[in-house]
Nucleic acid binder design. Structure first.
Length: 316
DNA sequence: AATTGCGCCAACCGCCGACCA
DNA sequence: TTGGTCGGCGGTTGGCGCAAT
């Protein structure tokens, strides 16, 4: 037997909320608070599911909510935190006063994800596409690598062509010699004749990445990101280091893009499992505790202790 | 002017963990 | 310990509005 529904579906209104409904809910909560969401719609005279009321309140009606565009600082915070904690939107939202998890999630899905993709970074792993390919390639033999490259190119090509045909990429990377294979994907225009050229260059970049195992670094973003500011002097993993969040260092340094350097260093510096100490000095873990605590990223309250592999796990 | 495609975002859904009797 | 209930979370969907054709 399944779980009983949270309310009788037949008598429940769904869809957009009307101003009258908003008023009823707001004034009821102002008087009685938000205890027992199941009873709130009944007592407030609303034909809504309690869950729907809670959502409406937390995502829209709450007086402390900030509506409107995300600032650059907020976007950077989201990017940084996403690199560390993945899709834990409530956790990320908890660091952005006035923003809800739904806000953050929507903004990520509609804007930031595309931004990253446009920068050649996989929004899930926060690694460059070419180096993901290269990493995979190191575990395969040449025939599989060839097949993989072809398959991946199919995907990347579609994605890149889509981006190229939509509009010019806003953020321009100033290529340097250490970036090598990234030359192809930045500073590009949407001219039709540039598309095929770009695809060819992507192909070339992938081939290079695969053929240069010394460019590949371990699956440890903290090493890369911490090294972001050292990109120009370090050897070995330069290409990846420069590109991953170090990319923003390039941009920040060279063309003043909002994707500044702090983004890299902070993500790297703060990697780790989210362990908090409560007021009694006891550790707690998980979203709820974190949400209830003060800013988890304030330097005096957090202890980072996440197993390294987890950091690149989008499910973490 | 009409149609189509796309982006954005509010709202919904199902799952899960916490809490309590 | 177990089962019922609730609230919270993340993924997904649907509808609206705008831009392009």
């Amino acid at each position: 037997m399944g779980r009983i529904p949270c309310c009788e579906k037949e008598n429940v209104k769904r869809g957009q909320w009307t101003p009258e409904e908003d008023n009823k809910l707001s004034s009821y909560i102002a008087q009685h608070g938000t205890r027992n969401w199941r009873l709130i719609p009944k007592n407030a005279g609303l034909q809504r599911c309690g869950k729907s009321c809670r959502l409406r309140w937390t995502n829209y009606l709450r007086p402390d909510l900030k509506h409107g565009q995300f600032s650059q600082a907020e976007e950077e915070t989201i990017m940084k935190l996403h690199a560390v904690v993945g899709n834990r939107w409530s956790l990320i939202a908890a660091q952005l006063p006035g923003r809800t998890d739904n806000d953050v999630k929507n903004h990520w899905n509609t804007k930031l994800k595309k931004k990253l993709t446009g920068m050649g970074i996989d929004p899930v792993t926060h690694k460059s596409f070419s180096h993901l390919m290269a990493e995979i390639a190191t575990t395969l033999g040449p025939p599989q690598v060839a097949n993989l490259t072809e398959a991946a190119l199919g995907c990347f090509k579609d994605e890149m062509l889509h981006l190229l045909t939509k509009k010019r990429i806003d953020f321009q990377l100033q290529p340097t010699s250490s970036q090598g294979n990234m030359n192809a994907t930045y500073g590009m225009s949407t001219k039709p004749d540039a598309k095929e050229d770009t695809v060819v260059k992507i192909k070339l970049g992938l081939s290079r990445a695969i053929q240069q195992p010394d460019m590949i670094i371990s699956n440890k973003p903290w090493e890369t990101t911490v090294g972001a500011t050292q990109t120009h002097v370090n050897g070995g993993c330069n290409a990846f280091t420069a590109f991953q969040y170090g990319q923003s260092a390039f941009i920040a340094e060279e063309d003043g893009s909002p994707w500044n350097q702090s983004m890299c260093s902070t993500a790297g510096d703060q990697l780790g499992h989210l362990k908090l100490e409560d007021e009694n000095g006891e550790e707690s873990e998980g979203g709820k505790e974190i949400r209830n605590g003060s800013s988890i990223f304030s330097t005096d309250s957090i202890l980072w202790d996440l197993p390294s592999d987890d950091l690149m796990n989008p499910m973490v």
